[in-house]
Amino acid sequence: MTIFLFTIRRCFRNIMNIILLCVLPFIVILMPNEEWTLLPLGFQLYGVVLFFAAARITSIIMEDRTKGVLMRIGVAPVTHLQYLWQNLLAYSLILIVQIVVVIAGGILYGHDLINPFLLLVVYVLFALTAIGFSLAWFSLFRHKETAFVVLMSSIMLMTMAGGMIWSVELMPELLQRLAMLFPTYWLAESLIIVATQADPTELAVPFVVLLLFTAAFLVIGSKRRLS
């Protein structure tokens, strides 16, 4: 589990990551309750934080690849699969801990989270999808900086188009359909289902879609090895 343990350490080795992982959760909790949102504002937007955080920490894999460290790890008696799953496990664990802290913090702060457990499941599923998405994304690029800048913009775009900031119903029909291609749409859907206390079985569709997204992204992302 050497790779796993060191990945966890490395996730906290730069300021940007520390802000995303340790500071922003508290801002999420402390954001005010707005009349116009179903969930407290911070929780409505928390998915964006998760997406950015997932992108930041998953970029470690890309860094290893471009710097040649991954090739060096390939010389050791470790398979590429071991490297990959230990990294992904570390990222997932970090985000899951963050989600637990955010939800527990929200409850303690006095927010009405309606169904905290379901909310936790929604966020965890989305975090896994975000990690998978970032992995697949980085596997397509050669330069970390380019990959990063384009990814950040795409996340913003997906956030807006996916209905996380405003309701998709406010968008034209065509865009509403297109939005379904983004994981953020399914996160927004799930949040609405939880917040409106609809029948939890309605979560099945968004959950399955998120899981399928995750699986597809992982397959794409794990294809690329060295070079």
Partner: peptide
Amino acid sequence: TQDITIFDDLTARENLEFFGGIY
């Protein structure tokens, strides 16, 4: 390796601990 392939975000000791660990 021909190029320097060490972790920039780990100390010298941690680098060695990592590579020792994966062996």
